[in-house]
Every structure is written in structure tokens, then in C-alpha cells.
């Protein structure tokens, strides 16, 4: 069971009140704390997960018992509205102009077999799935570039690094699938 910080009883209320009350209750919670929302509005089954997704909360679970719906939502640490930043991205060609300069690190987030088959000189291979565990290997200063085959995984790596508080990351796209530069 979840460690519930606050319980909101919105039973009997219909749309849009469960969402409105949930928003207000959530304002008092700190990131990581869990809100329990008890409702009977069946629209909430779809609405509250969508609300959580849109506002940057983590939707945990819905438990339904005798027509009573209990939602568990963990407060996210998403940036306040208006602060969402665009993903910094440069092209392969733009990267080649800075490649090799002091303070430049290229992280190739493809799988090891893809990396071995050919990668940019000096690139460090940290597959996307290992980013969170290998944060220590990624410099906090200088310019860090992330690359993959076509830009998708590099984008997710960028987001993971941004979520970890790194602000020195740039994505290189499209990536190795369309690479004209030197290869090792």
C-alpha cells in the first residue's frame, strides 16, 4: 500500500469537480508525496490519469471497490508551467564542427553491438537503458552531446539527463544512421 500523505474525498461529485478538487489538494503536497483521491465519478477512470500525465504527476494506481474508485497519484517534480524548455538539438554537421574540442563529450546511447559496428571517434558508449546508473561517467561541466541512430533514443537520453539536473546536454540528430563524418 502507498504511504498516503493526504486523502481527498470527492465521492458523489461529477465532472469536472473531481479534477478541480484534485488539483487544489495536490497544490499542498511536496514532490514525491502521494494523494489518495476517492470518487464515484466513472469519468475519473480516464480523466485523472490524463490529468496526472498533463500536469507532470505520477499516476500510481486505481482501486475499484463496490462502485467507489480510489486513485493514487504521486506529486511530480515537473517544472512549473512556462518553464518547460525545448530540447537543444544540433545536426550531425554542426556537431562535426565542435568534435574533438576541449570540454566536448559525445555519448553514444545505442546498444554495444551497434556501437562496435561503427561510431564517431572518441564517442563513449552508454546505452540508453544504463544512463541513470552511469550518470557519474557523464561530465557535469563542458558540453555533452548525445547521439543514437536516428535521434529517438538520444532524445530520451536527453530527457533523462535533464531530469537528473544536467543542463549541459545537446542532442545530435539525426545521428549515426545518416553519418558522413569519420568512423572508428
Amino acid at each position: 500500500m502507498y504511504n498516503v500523505t493526504r486523502t481527498l474525498d470527492a465521492k458523489g461529485l461529477s465532472c469536472p469537480m473531481p479534477v478541480v478538487r484534485t488539483k487544489k489538494a495536490m497544490e499542498d503536497l511536496a514532490p514525491g508525496e502521494v494523494l489518495e483521491v476517492i470518487v464515484t465519478d466513472r469519468g475519473s477512470i480516464a480523466d485523472l490519469p490524463m490529468w496526472a500525465k498533463t500536469t507532470g504527476q505520477e499516476y500510481l494506481e486505481l482501486i475499484e471497490e463496490n462502485g467507489v474508485l480510489t486513485h493514487y497519484i504521486k506529486k511530480g517534480s515537473a517544472p512549473e508551467k512556462g518553464e518547460t524548455t525545448e530540447m537543444k538539438t544540433i545536426t550531425n554537421e554542426e556537431y562535426l564542427e565542435v568534435a574533438g574540442q576541449d570540454g566536448v563529450t559525445l555519448i553514444d546511447v545505442r546498444e554495444p553491438d551497434e556501437f562496435e559496428a561503427g561510431h564517431a571517434p572518441g564517442a563513449v558508449n552508454i546505452p540508453l537503458g544504463q544512463i541513470d546508473d552511469r550518470l557519474a561517467e557523464i561530465p557535469e561541466t563542458g558540453d555533452v552531446y548525445v547521439i543514437c541512430r536516428s535521434g529517438g533514443r538520444a532524445g530520451r537520453a536527453y530527457e533523462a539527463l535533464e531530469a537528473a539536473g544536467r543542463d549541459n546536454v545537446t542532442r545530435v540528430a539525426p545521428g549515426m544512421g545518416d553519418w558522413d563524418g569519420p568512423v572508428e
Binding site: 469536472p16 479534477v19 478541480v20 498533463t54 500536469t55
Partner: peptide, 11 residues
Amino acid sequence: FNIATAAAATD
């Protein structure tokens, strides 16, 4: 008002 409040409650 339902759309308006729902949108406002969703930031």
C-alpha cells in the same frame, strides 16, 4: 464551464 474549469485545473 466544464471545459474551462477542467483546462484551468490542468494548468
